[in-house]
Write a protein that binds this DNA or RNA. Sequence first.
RNA 1: GGUGGGGUGGCCGAGUGGCUAAUGGCAGCAGACUGUAAAUCUGCCGGGCUACGCCCUACGUAGGUUCGAAUCCUACCCCCACCA
Length: 374
Amino acid sequence: MFTFRIERDSGAARAGILDLPHGPVLTPAFMPVGTYGTVRGLHPEEVEQAGAQIILGNTYHLHLRPGETVIAAMGGLHRFTSWRRPMLTDSGGFQVFSLAGLRTITEAGVEFTSHIDGSVRTLTPESSMDIQWALGADIAMAFDHVVPGQASRELAEEGMERTLRWLTRCRRRHDELADARQTLWPIVQGGSYDDLRLRSLEGTLERGPWTGTAIGGLSVGEPKPVMHRVLESLAGALPRDSPRYLMGVGFPEDLVEGIARGVDLFDCVAATRNGRHGSAWTSAGRVNIRKASHRTDERPLDAECDCATCARFSRAYLRHLFVASDILGLRLISLHNVRFLLRIGELARAAILARNFDGWSREWLRRYHAKEEA
RNA sequence: GGUGGGGUGGCCGAGUGGCUAAUGGCAGCAGACUGUAAAUCUGCCGGGCUACGCCCUACGUAGGUUCGAAUCCUACCCCCACCA
């Protein structure tokens, strides 16, 4: 269990198979985000049919509601949500960043003022492990301290060092608690500073062994070239024989760029959030479905897409649904976007296996960045 | 026919002498979104310019008072309610 086998690599890019208690994950792969135990707006069957092999849940949000006690009583997150395939839970570390105005960090952990009812909630490395074990995902994530992309070296270093100290505590607690049904993955921090990133990785590996390694704190406001550079500087130092998970990334081009730099797993809320906001990704760039130019546009979002939305609906109809504020519009574009990212994983994997990743990725990026024709 | 209320920018609707090209909302147009405080948020939204400023046209219609009117006065037109 939790074994990772690399089938082929092509430059830095790798195609592999990760075995988890609830099934295999063929990489590279995108993991749709289901913060509250649902990939927003989508039926689990749709998510499955779109090709999702693993989805995320969130410790902080599920702790607030319905609470891990309820979920444990209902037989764990898998049974509660009816999702049969692998799952990963985020630790709540990202909320240290995203709820910056609502929390206080101490060495012990983080105090949050609940955005739901204003109550004070504490998350520590230990409680995050407790909650995640109660949720019962295949992979639990370490509780980390995420800092903004523009963070100073001092702040980035502080977050990175704290993340390492917390990692020790996460590891200890998880070892006491969990059995072979769940593994724990650490998270590399260090902001946009290559040396901090390498120190973070070094400290992380010292606290191992691990069945996978995550890279966190990217796509949080830093320029894209910085993210690419950090990935490149880490690529050589990361263990070759375990999966690398780039947290919170990304947009389609980020997946392709990430895979080219050795990343195996991704997750991102943008597929569903942008979908709800009417923004769709296509092989020819972005499409804002609300634009008047789609009023009588008979084309699908993306003629090359094999998703259920593109198989059936015109842009004109999708636009109409948005203009009419019907939830079907949000759902259909969310579904398309999820499929679009999942398909990038599949296409990249096929290209790697065919020893053609460089050619494929170059062509893919060229077409994606070409201006969309009206 | 009488009495009362009312006619404001595509729509709804504030404003009752100067700070008003006129609050808001809707509609419309465009943009943002990366381990989800987001079916959210931001900008534009009378017309025209040699545009960080200027010029037109605007609050039912026509006059009037005033340095100045969507806001006050007069007449007329229209809408609504009630009474005949």
